[in-house]
Structures are given as structure tokens and as C-alpha cells.
Simulated scan of single mutants.
Amino acid sequence: MDVPYDITSYVRVLKLASTPSWQEFSQIAKIAGAGILLVGLLGFLIFVIMIPITGGL
């Protein structure tokens, strides 16, 4: 593990990183929110389907 090389690579990545614009951020937030809602809905549907199979809560 070459520590000076690791630090320079981290610095290089930080220099390339930039703050997203408001439009880019809002689009990413919408997509992430839709994904969270989709996973939650899928889990709820599996829960509703399993209630009759297992005989209740």
C-alpha cells in the first residue's frame, strides 16, 4: 500500500468532482424517490399476498 499514491489519487478525484446543478439534483432526487416508492409498494404487495397464505398476522 503506497500511501502517497493513494492520497494523490483521492485529491485527483476530489478535483474532478463538482456540485450538481439544481436541475440535475432534482432529477436524481425524483428518480431515487420513485425507486424507494416502488420498492416499498412491492414489499407491501408481498405482505398483502402473504396474509391469506399464512393464515393472518
Results as ranks from 00 to 15, higher is better:
52 P>E: 08
40 G>L: 13
48 V>W: 12
18 S>Y: 07
36 I>M: 14
55 G>F: 06
16 L>E: 15
46 I>Y: 10
50 M>K: 00
4 P>F: 01
53 I>W: 05
42 L>I: 13
15 K>C: 05
55 G>I: 00
9 S>C: 07
44 F>A: 14
55 G>R: 00
33 G>I: 04
32 A>E: 11
51 I>E: 02
46 I>E: 10
55 G>P: 04
27 Q>A: 14
40 G>F: 09
49 I>R: 07
26 S>Q: 08
31 I>W: 06
25 F>P: 01
31 I>C: 13
41 L>M: 14
30 K>E: 12
26 S>D: 12
10 Y>G: 01
14 L>F: 12
15 K>H: 06
5 Y>L: 13
56 G>N: 07
46 I>K: 06
5 Y>E: 12
41 L>Q: 08
45 L>C: 12
44 F>T: 08
55 G>W: 02
30 K>S: 12
37 L>G: 15
7 I>Q: 03
34 A>E: 14
43 G>D: 06
18 S>T: 05
1 M>Q: 10
42 L>A: 15
39 V>H: 00
24 E>F: 04
17 A>D: 10
49 I>G: 05
30 K>A: 13
35 G>T: 01
3 V>H: 11
41 L>V: 15
9 S>A: 14
6 D>T: 03
29 A>S: 11
14 L>N: 03
52 P>S: 05
3 V>C: 09
32 A>S: 11
44 F>G: 10
21 S>T: 15
9 S>R: 09
7 I>L: 03
17 A>L: 15
16 L>D: 15
38 L>N: 02
54 T>C: 09
50 M>T: 02
6 D>H: 03
35 G>D: 13
15 K>T: 05
23 Q>S: 07
37 L>C: 07
6 D>C: 08
37 L>S: 03
19 T>E: 06
25 F>D: 08
